[in-house]
Amino acid sequence: MSLAASQEDFAQALLHAERPLPAGITTARGQPDAARFAVYRNNVYVGLTKALAQRFPVTERLVGAAFFTAMARLYAQDNKPASPRIIDYGDDFPAFIAAFEPAAELAYLADVARLEAAWTRAYHAADAALPDLSAVAAMAPDALPNLRLAAHPSAALIRSPHPVGSIWGAHQSATVPPMEAWDAETVLVVRPDMDVNVHIVPAQDGIFAQALFGGAPLGEAAEAAFAHEPAFDFGAALVGLHALGAFAGIHQGDVP
């Protein structure tokens, strides 16, 4: 058998426990041994589910280790890392959780996982200096609507009908404090320097930031936020989001 054919055979047996052992594997006794081949099967899936547990610790805490491992194992069955760059593994695990029937009762689970996926993306994102906002303050008011602000490479917004930021925050300590309220939350995940921060921001600020991150000019982004909340405070939102590190550049006209 060619090396390509033998590795395909090996991989199929590795990935599907119901398949027979690959042809040609043996032991010093001269007999193939299923328990030995199972070490490789186990390594693949234990390695992948462990990688997911490391990336999604709050998600794991919310459902318990046994449920999480079973869910992660099912995800890993059909979703292998796209490359050896394992730090990206699980980018679409939140979408899998959203469609995972046994977890449907925990409607907020997928959004917590989205937050955790954003957290590790922010951790590994490109570093970028924060722009100087004082230039904006000095601008003629009619220049402002056309201004564009580029998202910081680490920045991500999670808009959820659930208190996703509060749930995540409550599970950062050993003992989980009771939830005081159960409201929709918008969360900004961002790493302005070396620490990844998770901020709960007003919903209208989230809409504003989302529009800016999508490339909309300031005027258009502000209109979207006003449409959601007439009391939207444009200046406070801009200064506030900037102070959290949400932006990496200010441009007149199109973002280059």
């Binding site: 090396l3 395909e8 590795l14 040609g24 390594n43 693949v44 292998k80 490359s83 050896p84």
Partner: peptide, 22 residues
């Protein structure tokens, strides 16, 4: 060792036969 497959990265160090081809 080897670890790549059509379905993605297999995340283990898998063994190979020692032949002239390999």
């Amino acid at each position: 060792a080897w670890s790549t497959h059509d379905t993605g990265f297999l995340n283990d160090l898998l063994p190979l036969p020692y032949t002239d081809e390999t």
